[in-house]
């Protein structure tokens, strides 16, 4: 019996790792390959989550929709709208250099969060959207979790393959050139602003998809889920820890952070309750410590970016 429980929990963690894996992949395209310091992940996550929620829920009073569409339409819509919103933002903000872009993107994400939190007609404001259909949601608990894992795992795998392919292609080489030496890339005749915008929009679409998968998992989305702490900075920690510029590293970073987060709680719960409650803060400390250690001793992350073409032979 206990093993079944543990397996159930492992399945749940795997689902979360897949969802956050999508966010980390999206960020990896923006930061890892293109050097865009996007600190507004929560904003695109939110756009995706709410778009899919509004498209797929049954008709509801007091807010726009729901349109009761099939779930895949919701997911596609989430990607499209996240991309569509990223486009004008990128158009304006990408002219800033890295740190200014970070500030601008935090601002944009906060604006999105406050709009979602305040606009009744659009998102039911602080109460959030409920009754979101969940694929395979009618199955018994364990089966339903497994089926959802298969679904999000498949989505992550496809996204991973596509991103890998894109990065290995000339486009990826060009993006790294722009990241590493913008002037040289421009001198080679590359349209730097447009290419950066491409990367920004592409990454945002993946973040939107991650948001949609999250909303359907919980059958509800509320503004509390788009807190910058859990939806922006956590993803950054995951990517830096795992290794930016490496897609496998990004996904590994997600796994490491969730595993630390979860299992340190299980360990601290073995203490008596009075201490266990206080000990929960150690989780935040542990993740911070892990990040410090990685930055100090392995600044390129656990799985560093492969050095493509350095020796002329090792290139893939």
């Amino acid at each position: 019996m206990e093993w079944i429980g543990l397996l159930n929990y492992a399945v749940f963690m795997a689902i979360f790792i897949c969802i956050y894996g999508l966010l980390a992949l999206g960020l990896n395209i923006q930061w890892g390959f293109s050097g865009l310091f996007n600190a507004g992940i929560a904003g695109f996550f939110a756009v995706g989550a709410y778009t899919s929620a509004i498209l797929t829920t049954p008709e509801a009073d007091g807010r726009i929709g729901g349109f009761d569409m099939p779930v895949p339409v919701g997911w596609a819509g989430a990607m499209l709208l996240a991309a569509a919103i990223a486009w004008p933002i990128g158009k304006i903000c990408l002219r800033f250099r890295s740190d200014y872009l970070a500030i601008a993107s935090i601002g944009v994400a906060e604006i999105i969060r406050l709009v979602i939190k305040s606009e009744d007609w659009l998102t039911n404001s602080a109460r959030g959207v409920t009754n979101i259909p969940r694929p395979f949601g009618d199955l018994p608990y364990a089966q339903s979790q497994l089926a959802y894992l298969a679904l999000v795992g498949g989505v992550l795998f496809v996204a991973y393959l596509l991103v890998e392919r894109q990065i290995a292609a000339p486009w990826g080489r060009m993006m790294r050139a722009i990241r590493d030496n913008e002037l040289a890339a421009r001198a080679m005749g590359k349209d730097v602003p447009f290419r950066r915008l491409e990367a920004f929009v592409f990454g945002a679409a993946l973040m939107g998809l991650g948001g949609a998968l999250f909303a359907h998992l919980n059958r509800a989305i509320t503004p509390e889920a788009i807190d910058p702490m859990v939806a922006t900075f956590l993803v950054w920690i995951m990517l830096i820890l795992g290794g930016s510029g490496n897609n496998r590293g990004a996904i590994l970073g997600v796994a490491v952070v969730w595993v630390i987060w979860s299992f340190s709680e299980i360990l601290t719960d073995q203490f008596p309750p009075e201490i266990a409650i206080k000990a929960k803060y150690i989780r935040i400390f542990l993740i911070g410590l892990m990040l410090q250690l990685v930055l100090r001793f392995r600044p390129e992350g656990i799985l560093p970016e492969p050095q493509r073409g350095v020796s002329g032979k090792k290139d893939s």
């Binding site: 929990y9 979360f16 509800a220 509390e224 889920a225 807190d227 859990v230 987060w261 979860s262 709680e265």
Partner: peptide, 11 residues
Amino acid sequence: NPQNATDAATK
């Protein structure tokens, strides 16, 4: 927040 709540509840 929902992320930690589902984690804690699943656990």
